[in-house]
Every structure is written in structure tokens, then in C-alpha cells.
Computed example of a mutant assay.
Amino acid sequence: MNKHNDSERTTHFGYQTVAESEKANKVAEVFHSVAAKYDLMNDLMSAGIHRLWKRFTIELSGVRQGNRVLDIAGGTGDLTRKFSRLVGPEGEVVLADINASMLKVGRDRLLDKGVAGNVRFVQADAEALPFPDNHFDCITIAFGLRNVTHKDRALESMLRVLKPGGRLLVLEFSKPGNPLLSKAYDQYSFTLMPLMGKLVTNDAESYRYLAESIRMHPDQETLKAMMEEAGFARVSYHNMTGGIVALHRGIKP
């Protein structure tokens, strides 16, 4: 499904099958639609727990003064803001997002909070990152990998721009281990999430897509194998909230 030269290939957009060439535009439409209320919806949908998931990601990143960090699909800038403080004036954080609406919301929000000096904003596609080889000490992608058409290409691109010894952290919805939790989570995702989307953003369809995209994302072991296949070493993952979310970590050899 991932041959580079076949323009007629199809991929998943939630539960729909679409031409690969269409997926990026369809994902863009979703995030243009939800950008302004994205943070509010995250708080509502996760009861605020997404903040704890992100805090754990920061702790595991090992980022320190003077580091150069890339926050892919950085959206509204939660991780970027924390990294900006950690790397200090000698370091740099690049907030990258393929979606102009999300990038603008993130930039405005960070500027409002006085974060500016060591942060750059770049509109970029995770599959073809516009940065030099061996450039970053750490890369994070939080709740973004499932929206990428060719995850293998994105992982290879991330590996390329990491310094040897650099770390990739992938925070993403995953597969709960407990069947009862899984059933409850399905009910919540396909009933409450679109309903909240309708009430808060007047857009049930975008949130239905987000729920479906979570189900189509590789499970914990599959993503671990994909990271190893891309060339990452010492790949491990931590399940959070019963496996509803997993944090994968890999090192560039």
C-alpha cells in the first residue's frame, strides 16, 4: 500500500477509502473546521487528562537547556510552550503543522502567552520535513501520526532530521487492553464525541472522522515494529489510561 510511484493507490480516511492524493486535503478540512475550538474540545473529550499525557511526554523527552526540538503536528502549542521553557534562550523549538489554521491558532496562542524568542513556526508535511539531516535533539508528534497518509515515510523523515542519539516520542491514541474498557471507549467515541463536536463546534462529522481515525491507527506493537523498520533503536512504549493512549519512544542510532 505504500509504493511511492502509484498515483491511483487508496488509503483510509476514517472508515472511508479515498485516493491517497485526496487524504491530505480531507484531513486539512477537518482541522480548518475545528482549529478555533480544538483546545476546548480536547479538554472536554479527555476530561483534561490530555494534559497529563503531555506532561509525561515532556518528562520522558529528556529535553534540556540548549537543545533543538521539533514539535510536529504541534497544533495549538501545548508541548512547544513547555519545551520553550526547557531549552532556554540558547535552544530552539520548531512548531510544525501541515495545517495553516492550526499553525495560526498555535502561533497566536503562544504569542499571547509571551512565548516567542526561541520558537519558530513552520508549515510542513511530516512525510517530507524541510530540515537538514541530523538537526534535532528531540522530535515529538502528539495525536498527529494517525492523520499522516504514509506513516512509514514520515517516520523515515523524522529519523533523517534527528541527530544520532536523538529521541522521537509519538503520543497517540491506541488500543485498550481490557475488552470492557474497549467497549465503553467505543460507545464514548462514536456517540459522545460527535455529539460534543456538534454542540461545541457545530461539526459532528469532523469528530466522527477523528474517532474513526483512532480505530484505523496501528496498535502498540504494530507501531513499535514500524518505528524499528524505519531505523529507530531501543523502541519502547508506555500505555496510559488503560492503553487508550500510548507513548512510543525510539532513539536514532
Results as ranks from 00 to 15, higher is better:
residue 6 D to G: 00
residue 7 S to C: 08
residue 7 S to G: 10
residue 7 S to V: 12
residue 9 R to W: 04
residue 9 R to P: 03
residue 10 T to M: 06
residue 15 Y to P: 07
residue 21 S to G: 06
residue 21 S to F: 06
residue 22 E to M: 11
residue 26 K to D: 00
residue 27 V to R: 02
residue 29 E to M: 06
residue 30 V to K: 03
residue 31 F to T: 10
residue 32 H to V: 06
residue 34 V to M: 06
residue 35 A to D: 11
residue 36 A to F: 14
residue 37 K to S: 12
residue 39 D to F: 07
residue 41 M to H: 07
residue 41 M to P: 11
residue 42 N to V: 06
residue 47 A to F: 13
residue 49 I to M: 14
residue 51 R to K: 11
residue 51 R to D: 02
residue 52 L to K: 12
residue 52 L to F: 11
residue 54 K to M: 11
residue 58 I to P: 13
residue 60 L to T: 06
residue 64 R to Y: 07
residue 65 Q to L: 13
residue 67 N to T: 04
residue 67 N to C: 14
residue 75 G to K: 05
residue 76 T to R: 05
residue 78 D to L: 10
residue 83 F to V: 07
residue 88 G to R: 08
residue 88 G to N: 04
residue 93 V to K: 10
residue 96 A to G: 09
residue 96 A to F: 02
residue 97 D to E: 12
residue 98 I to P: 14
residue 100 A to N: 09
residue 100 A to V: 09
residue 100 A to D: 15
residue 100 A to Y: 15
residue 104 K to A: 13
residue 109 R to W: 08
residue 111 L to Q: 14
residue 112 D to E: 13
residue 112 D to K: 15
residue 114 G to I: 09
residue 117 G to D: 15
residue 122 V to G: 02
residue 122 V to K: 04
residue 124 A to S: 08
residue 124 A to N: 04
residue 124 A to H: 00
residue 125 D to I: 04
residue 128 A to W: 00
residue 131 F to P: 02
residue 131 F to Q: 11
residue 132 P to E: 15
residue 132 P to G: 03
residue 135 H to R: 13
residue 136 F to G: 02
residue 139 I to K: 00
residue 141 I to W: 01
residue 141 I to M: 05
residue 141 I to R: 01
residue 147 N to S: 10
residue 147 N to W: 01
residue 148 V to E: 00
residue 148 V to A: 05
residue 151 K to S: 06
residue 152 D to T: 09
residue 156 E to N: 11
residue 158 M to Q: 10
residue 161 V to P: 00
residue 162 L to Q: 07
residue 164 P to Q: 14
residue 166 G to D: 11
residue 166 G to I: 04
residue 168 L to H: 11
residue 168 L to V: 15
residue 177 G to D: 14
residue 182 S to Q: 12
residue 185 Y to R: 08
residue 194 P to I: 01
residue 194 P to K: 03
residue 195 L to E: 07
residue 200 V to C: 01
residue 205 E to G: 03
residue 206 S to V: 01
residue 208 R to F: 02
residue 214 I to H: 03
residue 215 R to E: 12
residue 217 H to R: 04
residue 218 P to M: 02
residue 218 P to W: 01
residue 218 P to R: 06
residue 220 Q to G: 11
residue 225 A to P: 02
residue 226 M to N: 05
residue 228 E to W: 03
residue 233 A to Y: 04
residue 238 H to T: 13
residue 239 N to A: 08
residue 239 N to Q: 10
residue 240 M to G: 13
residue 241 T to G: 03
residue 248 H to I: 02
residue 249 R to A: 15
residue 251 I to C: 12
residue 252 K to V: 08
